[in-house]
Simulated scan of single mutants.
Amino acid sequence: MLTDLHIAVIGGDARQLEVIRKLIQLDAKTSLIGFDQLDHGFTGATKYQIEELDFSDVDAIILPVPGTNHEGQVDTIFSNEKVVLTEEILKKTPEHCIIYSGISNGYLNELVKTTNRKLVQLFERDDVAIYNSIPTVEGTIMLVIQHTDFTIHGSNISVLGLGRVGMSVARSFAALGANVKVGARKSEHLARIAEMGLQPFYLSELDKEIADSDICINTIPYPILTAKTLSNVPTHALIIDLASKPGGTDFRYAEKRGIKAILAPGLPGIVAPKTAGQIVANVLVNLLKDAADAREEKK
C-alpha cells in the first residue's frame, strides 16, 4: 500500500490513467495536474491547476513518458492548460521528493541538478523497456501492413540496432516469414544475431546492406539513415523509425526521393495505452514503495 504518500501526476496521455488507477487502488493521496478536461473523474484523486497545488508535502512527481520539452512544458492531452515544470516548483517540494519520467532531456537534467532532486528515468530500466517492446512490435507490424502493398512474409527487412526493442522487432518479423538482417556495431551483438538465425552485418556496411531492403526499421537514436545512405535505398522501401525524436532518419531527403519514412516513437501509447500504462504503473509502484521504505529506515 502507498498510504500516506502524496503523489502528483502531471500531464500525460492515456497511459497515465492506468498509473492513476493504480495509485488510488493503493491508497496514495493523488493530485492531478493537466487533467481538467478528463471525461470521467477518479474517486480518490483531486484535480488542480499547477499554481494551486501545495508542493511542500509532495513525495513524488510523475511526469509523462516524454517528460518535458526543452522549455519545461509538459504534454497535457486532457487539458488546454499550459503546464510548465520550473525550478521554483521543485524547490517547494521536500528534499526527498523524487521525479519519475519515461525519458529525460537537457532541461530536465539541469532542473533536478539545480534543485538537488532525484530523477528516475523509467525507460532506462531494462524491465520497462523489455515489457514495452511488446506493444512496440505490434504497433510496428500494424504500420508496415498499413503502408505496404506486399506481404511481410518473404520481404527483405533490415533492422538497425540490437537493443531491447531491436531484438524483439527482429525476432517477431522473422517469425512472420520475413528475411531479416540486423545491423549492429559490436561483435558480440553480431554473434547474438547469428545465434538467433538472422543475418548479421556491421553498421559500417549499411550503405551496401540496405540496397535490397523492402522495409527498414531503425531503433538507433542518432543520425544513421543519412542522405548518403538513403541514396542506396529502393524507392519502394518503407522506413519505420522507432527512435526517440527526432529519430535517426533524414526525413527531408527521404521525401525528396519518394521514400515513405515514418517517425513512430511512443507506439505503445498509441496502439496499446492500457497495457503500456499498466507496465509503467506496476514498475512505479515498486519504486515508490522502495523509496518510502528507505526513508523509514533512515528515521
Score class of each variant (00 low, 15 high):
residue 14 A to S: 10
residue 14 A to C: 07
residue 15 R to F: 00
residue 19 V to P: 03
residue 19 V to H: 00
residue 22 K to R: 10
residue 22 K to H: 02
residue 23 L to H: 08
residue 25 Q to A: 12
residue 27 D to M: 13
residue 27 D to K: 15
residue 28 A to V: 06
residue 29 K to S: 15
residue 30 T to Q: 12
residue 31 S to W: 09
residue 34 G to P: 03
residue 35 F to T: 09
residue 35 F to S: 03
residue 37 Q to M: 14
residue 38 L to K: 14
residue 39 D to M: 13
residue 40 H to Y: 13
residue 41 G to S: 12
residue 44 G to C: 08
residue 44 G to N: 07
residue 45 A to N: 02
residue 46 T to R: 14
residue 46 T to S: 10
residue 47 K to P: 03
residue 49 Q to V: 04
residue 49 Q to R: 13
residue 50 I to P: 06
residue 51 E to V: 00
residue 53 L to H: 05
residue 53 L to W: 01
residue 54 D to S: 05
residue 56 S to P: 09
residue 57 D to T: 12
residue 58 V to F: 02
residue 59 D to Q: 09
residue 59 D to M: 06
residue 60 A to T: 02
residue 62 I to H: 01
residue 64 P to N: 04
residue 67 G to S: 07
residue 67 G to Y: 02
residue 69 N to Q: 08
residue 75 D to T: 12
residue 76 T to P: 11
residue 76 T to E: 04
residue 76 T to C: 15
residue 77 I to P: 09
residue 80 N to V: 07
residue 80 N to A: 05
residue 80 N to K: 15
residue 83 V to Y: 05
residue 84 V to P: 11
residue 84 V to H: 13
residue 84 V to C: 11
residue 84 V to N: 07
residue 85 L to G: 04
residue 86 T to D: 11
residue 88 E to W: 03
residue 90 L to Y: 03
residue 90 L to A: 11
residue 90 L to S: 12
residue 92 K to E: 06
residue 94 P to W: 07
residue 95 E to P: 10
residue 96 H to K: 07
residue 96 H to N: 09
residue 96 H to D: 11
residue 96 H to V: 10
residue 97 C to V: 00
residue 101 S to D: 01
residue 105 N to V: 11
residue 105 N to L: 14
residue 106 G to N: 14
residue 107 Y to Q: 07
residue 107 Y to I: 13
residue 108 L to D: 08
residue 108 L to M: 14
residue 110 E to V: 13
residue 110 E to H: 15
residue 110 E to Y: 05
residue 112 V to W: 04
residue 112 V to K: 04
residue 112 V to E: 06
residue 113 K to C: 12
residue 114 T to F: 06
